[in-house]
Design a protein around this nucleic acid. Structure first.
Lengths: 121, 121
DNA sequence: CTGCTATTTAACTAAAAGGTTAATTAACCA
DNA sequence: TGGTTAATTAACCTTTTAGTTAAATAGCAG
């Protein structure tokens, strides 16, 4: 069984499922509410399956209300994702540092590229 | 061909690939550098394939340096991911609002649950 | 109980993902 | 030129994913 993060990213790697999340971000919805926009493109069981993927990934919480299954987003999961991506914050912020560095290099005149991969030992 | 966001999330949905990103977050690395920690578990072609997935997703940029292929993270891609997740910021922040609301409800005494799913017409 | 609405499960299929080994390309070095 | 290192491509296999249709379950409403 894959780890939670893998389940979560895999769940997000599908446009249909991401569209469902958008709809849920506007508020609770039942399975058939969620299915409505997709029934031109796919069957209801297909929607059920997508929802199960989202549920197993912990992105969506499905409850019971008579014969309906109201679904809602799980805030915790999105927080976790945000935290994961944030690990790479320095990476995208460094773009500007590198640009600074490059500009300095250009201003300071040409310098040799140098071999960055010398044979080890 | 899937959209960029789908490619990106799919690329992240694998622990091996995420581990490669961690290594790259510490700086540029060649394919064999990247492969080293995984060669107990899988072959070099498998690593090449993983890398290609990361590259097609735009998460990694592969350049040429003699017979080496130095790889580095693409800051832009991570920035895009952060922006996407940020769309859901209100969702995870609302957790606390809902808790507030719940506490108010409890303090104010019982109230009927009500039917949330009335039949539509 | 009967029937209607909501949703899921079962059984199946086609395509994509992730791995393998063997062969190939690319670039340097003596 | 021939050898060595770095990396990729080809051909193949197995498992997973995403969809299908048909049948089953669940809960309410007469």
């Amino acid at each position: 069984m894959p780890d939670t993060l893998s389940l979560r990213f895999a769940a997000l790697a599908d446009p249909t499922r991401r569209a469902m999340l958008v709809q849920l971000s506007k508020g609770q919805a039942s399975v058939s509410d969620l299915a409505k926009p997709f029934l031109k493109d796919m069957s209801l069981p297909a929607v059920t399956k997508h929802l199960k993927v989202l549920e197993k990934a912990g992105l969506v919480i499905k409850t019971r209300e008579a014969q309906w299954r109201p679904c809602q987003l799980n805030g915790e999961a999105f927080k976790d994702l945000a935290d994961w991506v944030d690990q790479y914050r320095t990476i995208w912020e460094q773009r500007f540092d590198r640009l600074d560095e490059y500009l300095k290099t250009v201003t300071a005149g040409k310098q040799s590229k140098g071999k960055r991969y010398a044979r080890k030992k």
